[in-house]
Design a protein around this nucleic acid. Structure first.
Lengths: 336, 336
DNA sequence: ATTGGCACTTAGGTGCGGCGAGTGCCAAGC
DNA sequence: GCTTGGCACTCGCCGCACCTAAGTGCCAAT
């Protein structure tokens, strides 16, 4: 039984390396297995019965099925660590980043470059962040600009037309009350924290205040778009001879924010691997996704990952995803 | 001579519609040209001598060369206007946008959808904008956050560690002086406007002030990245049977910010068309680019456009690009 | 100048045979 | 009882020959 798993591992590794169905003969030769091709054939037949490998046509070798990759991945005890040059490259890539946009943009390009796959990085989620500051600016007496700054460095802004004009002193009061109630608190708690803010104000102001609070809640919760960036789509091409069937649907899927967000899922710390048909989205049945959470504080405020062909080098890719997540988390903690 | 140009036009239109080399027979039949195939053959031979069309192999019809497309485009007097449903779709697409990020994101998706090509939209350039507000926030006594808001709605922020601690009153003074000098002025003028700001302060502050000014200038000028977003890469696939040669290099090129910015060029009002080999970038020799400027004030603060195969429907695409630029300009003017 | 006719070129499809890779099964061996 | 060598069998793939369809260039006639 253990030997059979060794053979599965060998098949996966060989197939990933060569992109050709692997037969019993080369398997016996290339790997140090001290058994004959005939024995391997018997084991292969068993593996095929179990649904772990399949032969594309009668006169070809075997390739792993999605289930085969799954078993392979589950049996991995360690992911492959990055090489020293790779680690240096990561440092160098991130070190000049000036703000959150920059960090995210660099991270996604970095991840694509290191893994040679398509990289996906989600911005730190607003609802999981805390408020750092809320700024209220008068563009004109009836027009405000609201700026919400989260502790992850993320900044949201909105323009707002007021029903009544507002003078400078009112504005200052609103600003200071907003901040004293919110700063340091989770954005998810804002609805409660700001619920009865208008009570702090004299009778003539509440309409304006209600408008302002509504817009802030909109920014923080309702319309807080979960932003996602993608890079390295060119890598889809690299290993795809058959184009229109395999690459086009994936490109299509990657265009849709909704799909991407579902792909990344809820931000959790552990690394997750979804292989081929394990994914709901039919367009992605030929691909696998590796994701993990990241965040400055240690617990995940967002997710990043890669998507590539099911035939990918899982140990190396998983190592890279995990390493990049660690690096960017640390960087966010120190710098932003 | 005029007839010859008519034939060129017919060849381009037919080839764009069918994606097949067009021969003299179908040309005589399909278009209302009241001349025989033989005559058309003579004219075609002339067009080939002029380098406007070419035959892929001896027994095939003719297809336009880059130069042929160029002549075709230059002879266009009018671009094709959008259909009523298309115009309604644009309105609907843009109307819910809440901030600049949102407008840009929606615009690029809109443009990709309308043209069925790859869309590229540049964020309003900072150096062409004016300052709307500069905010200075204390994160701790030694750590500031600077926020620069441009009149195009664009927001840049930076974290800054101060050499000396700074108290609330100093902070307020810095903020008000920064704003009184900058607001409403072009960001490009900031270096002059803020040059001797430290003179307004008592002797003990200048180091801090110099740091702050330096970071603001960095945001506004030096490191003001020109941001670009891309959408619709899946459309590259749609019409490409030969994949690895034609699509991969384009995807690669689209990954590089530098390439994209060069593609869009300086923001100018007129529409520009670059066809195939007219582009410097070798990876894009199989594609054409249509760009035009846009901006809330009427003069262009940024560029948007599309990139697609040289074999594209130029009149329709040019109409769409121009229309979307007009719509988004108007939207920016009204809303943000 | 235009046109019909005709010989010429070539891409692409089809049918055929041989080759090679790999398998499953069976009988012999440790 | 597991392992192994041998062998017949199955297909996919490649190269070849052949044919057809499409389109051209050129020439002579109008």
């Amino acid at each position: 039984m253990e030997r059979r798993m060794e053979i599965l591992r060998a098949i996966v590794e060989d197939y990933v390396a060569t992109n050709e169905p692997v037969g019993s003969k080369v398997l016996a030769a290339r790997h140090g297995l001290s058994i004959s091709p005939a024995t391997i054939r018997n084991e292969m037949a068993a593996l095929e019965d179990e649904g772990l490998i399949i032969q594309p046509h009668t006169s070809a070798g075997r390739i792993p099925t999605d289930l085969g990759y799954r078993v392979f991945v589950d049996r991995l005890s360690t992911v492959k660590p990055l090489s020293a040059p790779e680690r240096r490259a990561i440092d160098k890539f991130l070190e000049g980043a000036v703000d959150l946009d920059d960090v995210v943009a660099r991270t996604v390009r970095l991840l694509a470059q290191v893994t040679h796959q398509v990289a996906i990085v989600q911005y730190p989620s607003l609802t999981r962040s805390a408020a750092r500051h809320i700024e209220v600016l008068a563009l004109s007496p009836n027009r405000l600009m609201l700026v919400l700054i989260a502790d992850t460095g993320r900044v949201e802004q909105r323009i707002l037309d007021l029903p009544h004009a507002m003078d400078e002193s009112e504005l200052n009061m609103v600003r200071s009350k907003l901040n004293s109630r919110s700063v340091g608190k989770k954005l998810a708690a804002l609805p409660d924290l700001l619920k009865d803010l208008e009570k702090d104000f004299p009778d003539n102001a509440p309409t304006n205040i209600r408008h302002i609070v509504a817009v802030i809640l909109e920014m923080a919760i309702e319309k807080s778009e979960e932003r996602v960036v993608v890079s390295g789509t060119a890598n889809l091409a690299r290993h795809a001879p058959d184009f229109n069937e395999s690459v086009h649907p994936v490109l299509e899927a990657l265009e849709e924010q909704v799909v991407l967000l579902r792909l990344l899922g809820e931000a959790v710390d552990e690394m997750k691997v979804k292989i081929g048909h394990e994914q709901e989205n039919k367009k992605l049945h030929g691909t696998s996704v590796i994701t993990t959470g990241y965040g400055p504080t240690g617990d995940a405020v967002a997710t990043l990952g890669i998507i590539g062909p099911t035939r990918m080098d899982y140990p190396t890719s998983m190592g890279a995803v995990s390493a990049v997540a660690r690096y960017v988390s640390r960087f966010l903690q120190e710098e932003i």
